[in-house]
Each structure stands twice: as C-alpha cells, then as structure tokens.
Computed example of a mutant assay.
Amino acid sequence: MTATAAVKPAILQIGSLLPVLENWLDERYSVSRLDDAPDAKAFLAEQGGRFVGVATSALYGVSAEQIAAMPALKVISCFGVGVDKIDLPAARARGIAVGNTPDILNDCVADTAFALLLDIARATPEADRYVRTGLWAERGQNSFHLGRRVSGGRLGIVGLGRIGKTIARRALGFDMDIRYHTRRPVADATWPHEPSLVELARWADFLVVITAGGPGTLHLINAEVLDALGPRSFLINVSRGSVVDEPALVRALVERRIAGAGLDVFANEPFVPAELLALDNVVLLPHIASATEETRRAMAQRVIDNLDRFFADGTLITRVD
C-alpha cells in the first residue's frame, strides 16, 4: 500500500505539529488527531486498531500504553531529533520502525548554542535592558560592568554527536581551545577526549551540553559538575532539561558558584523556576534552538518523507537505531 493509493493509510497525530506539516499529512493520509478526542484513552481503546502509523514530535512522543493500544502500528515518524519521549523498547519489541529528523537542525542548534554563549559571556541581554531602562543615560559612559572574552576561551562540549561537532566547528572561528566528554572517544574527532566530566568542567570556561536526553543522562550535570565549573565559568544547555539537575543549577546561580548560564531547555517546560526569572546571570530561551522557518520546514518535510518511504518500500530515510 502506498500513501497515494485509493485507501490512505490511517495515521494518528499526537500533539500539535507545524501547520504546513499537518496540511501535508491531510493530503496524503487518513489522519486522526488525538488532541481532538474528548477522552484520549477511550478513543484509542475504540479506534486504535486501525492506525498503522503515528506522526508525533519530540515534545509529545509516544508512550508504551499508546503503542499497546495500536496493534496494527508499523511506523512512528517524529518531528525532532530527541526520542526520549518515545518508548523505544516497546516499539522495538513490536518491530515498529521509528524515524526522526537528524542533521537538518544541526546548524540552527549550533547557532543558538553560540548565541547563548555570547549573550551570557558579554551580558548582551542585560546590557540591552540597561540602555532601555535609562540606566546608561543616568550613570554615564563606562558604567556597565565588564563581560568575559569568548575568543581564545576553553570550550568543553558534553556530547559529540552531529550537533556537538557542528558547535565545535563554530568554536574554531573564535580560536577556542576545545575538548569534549562522551562515554567513549569519538572515532573521527580531532579534539581531545576528556573521560571525566568533572575534569572537563574544571578545565572549561564554557561548558556546552548537547547530549541526548532520557534515563541514561538524567541529571548528568549535577552539583559536583557545577562546583567543578566554578565561579568564573558558564553553562550552556541546548540538549534536554532533564540532563541538568535544575534545583542544583538554581542554587549554583543564586549563590554565584558559577558565573552564569544560557538555557534553551528546562525540566518542566514551559514552566521555569521563579528564581531564574529574577537573575541577571542567566539567559532564558523558550526552547527555540531549531526554530527557524527554513529548518522547521525541512524537518516537516523529513517527517513526511519518512512516512512516504515507509509506505512505499518499508524503509525510512532516517531511522532511529
């Protein structure tokens, strides 16, 4: 059966998706949106047997309970790279193919990491507020505090996958000294591998976190790592909020035990700890690292292409191992 056949494959959409993606799905498939059901569990209990595919996002994922309610499910196509909210063991046990959208967003996430790094080091958001509120006019030239130099600094990268390597390449333009931490050295990496995360934090001026989420990395950045980072260094997180022990980070920022942080992700999005909102040594973004028109459209296209390919020949363009 192909997506253009007279009988369109039945797809369950979990959560809201980019409008253009929803339009493309409607054109090709018979789509039901779980959000439209007054009672999602009751809907799946009654209708789950007819769905052969799921379109979802890294934000919503697919639970084991939802997978179990769809006995004919063959493929899950995810808008985003992160699959920590998809129950992969449940999918693998059933032989369900899972696709995501890697590579497409590497550049934009790396750009955002460096935007956060520059913003927090040079205090540009704070400086903007300083001008807008009239403090510069009131206090005069050279009244704003000094920032930190980025060029020539020491950059530690936690996770050296596709995006981590792209961040490292960005850093070369700033003449930065680069080291990285992963469980094992990356075969094609030209930068030094630091087997100890604590030692990497102790060495770095800037620690950028871009590792996968999930149980294996829960609170990887803990109080010990933050203490090693120290009062002259900065944390940048563009991975998942779960990777950082958020209460420990809040304490470290409030007590100025680290110099500052640039955060695109949080533990309980879209809610941010109130303490962070009052601090001037942290830059906060609403999880927008990949949020450009070009990248989001390309991600939407990959979701469709993965589904089209699967229903054509049973394969995916980008399959999660």
Results as ranks from 00 to 15, higher is better:
D177V: 06
R179I: 06
R179H: 11
R183G: 15
R183A: 12
R183Q: 13
P185R: 05
P185M: 07
P185L: 09
V186T: 13
D188N: 14
A189E: 00
T190Y: 00
W191Q: 09
W191M: 14
W191V: 15
W191L: 06
W191K: 01
P192W: 06
H193G: 10
H193Q: 08
H193R: 06
E194C: 15
E194A: 15
S196I: 09
S196D: 13
S196W: 05
S196Y: 03
L197A: 07
V198Y: 01
V198M: 00
E199I: 01
E199F: 00
E199K: 12
L200Q: 02
A201D: 05
A201Y: 04
R202M: 06
W203S: 12
A204P: 02
F206Q: 01
L207S: 04
L207Y: 00
L207T: 08
L207H: 03
V208T: 15
I210C: 15
I210L: 03
I210Q: 10
T211I: 14
T211S: 15
A212T: 14
A212S: 15
A212N: 12
G213T: 13
G213Y: 10
G214Y: 06
P215A: 15
G216T: 14
G216Q: 08
G216I: 14
G216S: 10
T217E: 11
T217W: 06
L218V: 10
H219Q: 13
I221E: 05
I221V: 14
I221G: 03
N222F: 05
E224M: 07
E224G: 10
V225D: 02
V225M: 06
L226P: 05
L226W: 04
D227V: 00
D227P: 00
A228K: 04
A228V: 11
A228I: 11
L229V: 08
L229Y: 02
L229R: 03
G230K: 06
P231G: 12
R232F: 00
S233T: 05
F234H: 10
L235V: 10
I236F: 00
I236E: 00
N237C: 07
V238E: 02
S239R: 05
S239D: 07
